[in-house]
Computed example of a mutant assay.
Amino acid sequence: MSQRVRWAWWALAYVLLGLGFVGIVVPFLPTVPFILAAAYAAARGSDRLHRWLLQHPRFGPMITDWQEQGAISRRGKWAAAISMAVCAAVLLAVAPVRWAAYAGVAVMVGMGTWIWTRPEPGPAQPPEM
């Protein structure tokens, strides 16, 4: 991989990580997808950042579950469902255009359905020899 491409992955990883951190405190901005995408980009652009994300006490297990099993924890599923329900209620209450509110809620229902169809993490798989 060329140095420019590696640098682009590195920059993207940090931008995504920054958006993930902003999503912790800003409602309507998701955290988990940005952290997962940051881990993906970091794996291609920054070994150090990728290791840090995998070893992070909060993000590491979530990233590992997703990378190894495509799994989302039950706690994560409930957190997503509750936050989307709150966002949907706010959207329906304040949206000036009803069809836009309904479209937003439909997207959240679709994403919620997809999230709940993901498997839950099982025991860690030993590395193959």
Rank of each mutant, 00 (worst) to 15 (best):
E68S: 14
A103R: 02
K77C: 10
A79H: 14
R98M: 10
M84Y: 13
A95H: 13
P61S: 06
V94S: 05
I63A: 05
V94E: 00
L91V: 06
I72H: 02
K77L: 12
P96T: 15
D65L: 10
V90K: 00
A95C: 05
A100V: 14
Y102L: 12
A81Q: 08
C87W: 13
Q69G: 02
A85C: 08
S83N: 11
S83I: 06
A88T: 05
S73V: 01
G60Y: 13
S73K: 00
D65Y: 10
L92G: 05
A89I: 13
M84E: 15
I82Y: 10
W99K: 01
G60V: 07
W99P: 02
W99V: 15
I63W: 08
R75H: 07
I63S: 04
V97D: 11
A89N: 13
R98Q: 08
I82Q: 05
A103T: 09
V105K: 02
V97L: 12
Q69D: 04
L91N: 07
G70M: 03
R98A: 11
A71H: 08
E68W: 10
W78C: 11
A93S: 15
A85H: 08
S73L: 00
A95W: 05
R74K: 13
M108A: 08
R74Y: 03
V86R: 01
A93E: 00
A103V: 05
A71E: 01
M84R: 01
V105F: 08
A100P: 06
V105W: 04
V107P: 04
W66F: 06
S73A: 10
V97Y: 15
A95P: 06
A79D: 10
Q69F: 13
P61E: 09
V86I: 14
W78D: 09
V86T: 07
A89M: 13
A88Q: 01
A100F: 12
S83C: 09
I82C: 09
G104H: 01
G104L: 03
A88N: 04
I72W: 00
T64F: 12
Q67T: 10
R98V: 10
W99T: 09
Y102R: 07
G60Q: 05
Q69H: 10
M108T: 05
D65S: 14
Q69L: 01
A95M: 09
A85L: 14
S73H: 00
V107C: 03
M108H: 04
W78I: 15
A101V: 03
Q67W: 11
W66K: 05
A71W: 08
D65W: 13
G104A: 01
S73R: 07
R75N: 12
K77V: 09
I82W: 15
I72V: 14
L91T: 10
V105E: 08
Q69S: 05
G70E: 05
M108E: 12
T64G: 11
A81D: 14
A93N: 08
E68R: 12
S73I: 02
C87T: 15
T64Q: 11
E68M: 09
V97S: 04
A100I: 12
V86E: 05
A80D: 12
M108I: 01
A80Q: 05
A79T: 14
P96R: 13
R98K: 07
K77I: 11
T64E: 11
A106K: 00
V107S: 01
A81S: 11
L91P: 03
I72S: 07
I72G: 04
G104P: 01
A101C: 04
W78S: 12
S73P: 02
A71D: 09
M84P: 04
A85G: 11
A95K: 09
A71M: 03
A103G: 07
